[in-house]
C-alpha cells in the first residue's frame, strides 16, 4: 500500500510517496537523500539513527514514516549550519570524540537535544543522556569530554550575545 504524505524535515516540507511499512529512517535515507542517520541495528537499540522528533531524540528506525506526518523532524543535516560547523560538531573534532564515525551523527543529535534542555549537564547526566547511543570505538570518554566542551562553548557564545 503506497501513500502520498508530507514530511517536515529540517524546516522544509517534503512531499513523498511511501509504503505503509516504511520506517522514517528508510524514507529519510532513501527518498530524501539525508544519509547522516545510520542503521546500526534496526531495532531501536543502538542510537545510530537518532533524529529530533517533536523536540526529543528518537530512533527513526522505530517510527513508521506514515506516523511522522505533521511532526517537526530535525536531522544532523538540519543541525549543521550553512557555512560552518555547529559548536557541538567542532567540539567533537577538537576533543578527539570521533573514530570510525558511524555513531557520530546519532551522538551529535542526542547531544544537541540534551544541551537544549540542559545547557550545563553534569557528567552523570551526560552519561545517562548518551547511554542509548552505542559506540564501539571510543570508550565514550572523549565523547563525554566533547559534550562538556560544547556546553562551555555554547554558554560562552550565549553570554556574548546578551
Amino acid at each position: 500500500m503506497s501513500k502520498d504524505i508530507t514530511l517536515n524535515v529540517n524546516g522544509i516540507d517534503h512531499h513523498v510517496n511511501i509504503q505503509g511499512n516504511e520506517t522514517l529512517l528508510k524514507v529519510l535515507r532513501d527518498k530524501l537523500g539525508l544519509t547522516a542517520a545510520k542503521e546500526g541495528c534496526g531495532a531501536g537499540e543502538c542510537g545510530a539513527c537518532a533524529v529530533i522528533y517533536n523536540g526529543s531524540p528518537a530512533s527513526s528506525c522505530l517510527i513508521l514514516a506514515i506516523e511522522a506526518e505533521g511532526v517537526e523532524i530535525l536531522t544532523l543535516e538540519g543541525i549543521t549550519p550553512k557555512d560552518h560547523l555547529h559548536p557541538i560538531q567542532q567540539a567533537f573534532i577538537d576533543k578527539g570524540a570521533v573514530q570510525c564515525g558511524f555513531c557520530t551523527p546519532g551522538m551529535i543529535v542526542t547531544t544537541y537535544s540534551l544541551l537544549k534542555s540542559n545547557p550545563d549537564p553534569t557528567e552523570e547526566e551526560i552519561k545517562k543522556a548518551i547511554s542509548g547511543n552505542l559506540c564501539r570505538c571510543t570508550g565514550y570518554v572523549q565523547i563525554i569530554e566533547a559534550i562538556r566542551e560544547a556546553a562551555r562553548r555554547l554558554k560562552r557564545s550565549k553570554g556574548r550575545r546578551k
Binding site: 532513501d30 547522516a36 545510520k38 570521533v98 564515525g101
Partner: peptide
C-alpha cells in the same frame, strides 16, 4: 601533537559515506 583528525569534518557533518550510503 594533537592534530585534529583529517576525517573529522566528514564524520561530524554526515558527509562521510559508508557502504550503505551508496546507491
Amino acid at each position: 601533537r594533537d592534530v585534529n583528525r583529517l576525517d573529522g569534518y566528514d564524520k561530524v557533518s554526515g558527509n562521510a559515506k559508508y557502504i550503505a550510503d551508496y546507491e
